[in-house]
Design a protein around this nucleic acid. Structure first.
Lengths: 191, 191
DNA sequence: AAGCTAACAGACGGGTCTGTCTACCAACAA
DNA sequence: TTGTTGGTAGACAGACCCGTCTGTTAGCTT
């Protein structure tokens, strides 16, 4: 048998990523992932002994992707941390424009997962990491209260992201970015 | 047979409200609603021919409740529309403090419902109504761009609400309210 | 050539979910 | 008295879903 271009594990993850994001992990049966990724059931359960393991791997992939996009958008805004805080909202704009955009994978998944579960804990952890990163940026931007500014900006970000599950209005990211600019300028006395 | 204090329909709705909000409509089987409300299956299906009808009734109840709380919080802030725009964030604070708080019922439900479904449409409609109400308030507050300010404030609101599904940090509502104040003052030239 | 590894194919059990259906019962109104 | 209304109780079909299991096949390594 000729080896497929993608190893089985990657094919499973790609399919899970696509389906889980579109319909939510609970909305996608294991059998569907198997059928769409063209993989044997035993293979899937070898790589991911429980469905939740696949969900966790999905969340990890989204986590890396989204953090990368946030960092890239921030960097593209220049060297000034204050500009970077505003610039990271370009990642929101890109996300909203993307085909099949369906809101924040973490909020969506957290909404359908049990409070004490591993899956739920992973979503909380993701938001914690993002908040820590933004807080550091706010501190370097000279904010009077970096934690507070960071929370305000992540609230805007989460609001913009979660709105995507309702309607993907094209103007939303720009509106959020403008609000971010106002908040950053109000919170950084040096500017 | 002696009639129970609550008619069957109300008992079903009360139970559905509690369970659907806690676990999401998809996470609660019809059988569970029946068992917890102490009602016969035929009775439930008589009042709500499909489960989605029950979900819609649940959303309507949340819609009325939440809008009422928003209006009450705004009114409590005084007569000035600008103050009311900030004051409505007290409704967020109350919601976050409530036992069993679990984020925004509409975002949570939208995340697990199909894009074209009745249920999804109802969630979109709710957000539209809220936005329209806030926009009117922003207009009366003399905002230079009422639609823009309203969108910014609802983004903050949705961000604060949806964060509740991850962690109910007690400081979040105050932080959001402070951001709202900054945004309102920046957007209303007359102030 | 032999053995090992990774994958494929698919049946199956036990469970859950929605929605329908039959049968029965109690109160009230004509 | 006789329907009618609104309810209870629970069986049932058909679909789906998770996870386990048996058996097969292809390629690589030794």
């Amino acid at each position: 048998m000729t080896r497929p271009a993608q190893p089985a594990r990657e094919r499973i993850l790609d399919t899970a990523f696509r389906l889980f994001y579109a319909r939510g992990p609970r909305g996608v049966g294991v059998d569907t992932v198997i059928a769409e990724s063209g993989v044997a059931k035993a293979t899937l359960y070898k790589h991911f002994p429980r469905k939740d393991d696949l969900v966790l791997a999905y969340l990890d992939r989204v986590d890396q992707t989204w953090l990368g996009q946030l960092r890239a958008a921030a960097s593209a805004a220049g060297d000034d941390p204050g500009d970077q805080l505003v610039g990271m909202f370009d990642a929101l704009a890109s996300a909203c424009r993307r085909e099949g955009y369906h809101g924040c994978a973490f909020i969506n998944t957290a909404a359908e997962s049990e409070a004490g579960s591993d899956v739920h804990a992973r979503t909380v952890e993701h938001k914690r990491v993002v908040l820590a990163w933004v807080t550091d940026l706010a501190r370097r931007a000279g904010a009077a209260d970096p934690a507070r500014l960071a929370r305000q900006l992540t609230l805007l970000l989460d609001g913009g992201l979660s709105a995507g599950v309702l309607d993907a209005e094209p103007g939303t990211p720009d509106t959020a970015k403008a609000a971010a600019r106002v908040l950053v300028e109000a919170a950084c006395p040096a500017r």
